[in-house]
């Protein structure tokens, strides 16, 4: 079971309070009517799904009910950091770049 630090509550809490919400830093396109079908598909469905460092979105569902970001290793499940919405991760995999 994961032990997660909520950046808003500033406390360590049990995993059961949270629900994962997939890859982080996906921006909704600002010019939707100009997008091709391929670009829409990419935004809606295609994901990095990395084996290694993963930046992901979590919801503190049974707590402050706020979304926040997490950088986690998808193989060891080690949580490297959690950070607030709008913030940039301080730990990134060099080969992956930052999206």
């Amino acid at each position: 079971m994961l032990h997660i630090h909520c950046p808003y509550c500033e406390e360590m809490r049990e995993e059961e309070e949270f629900s994962p919400a997939g890859q982080a830093h996906i921006q909704r396109p600002l010019n939707p009517e100009e997008l091709s079908d391929e670009q829409w598909a990419r935004y809606l469905f295609f994901r990095k799904n990395p084996r290694g460092l993963h930046h992901e979105l979590w919801l503190h569902a049974h707590g402050c009910r706020k979304y926040f970001n997490m950088t986690r290793n998808s193989v060891t499940y080690q949580i490297m950091e959690t950070y607030k919405m709008g913030a940039k991760p301080s730990i990134t995999a060099s080969e992956e770049g930052q999206s």
Binding site: L2, N49, R51, E56, S74, V75, T76, Y77
Partner: peptide, 13 residues
């Protein structure tokens, strides 16, 4: 488990 994971194990809950 709802999170992305390659570890061939999940959470106890």
């Amino acid at each position: 488990d709802g999170y992305v994971g390659y570890g061939q194990r999940g959470s106890f809950n």
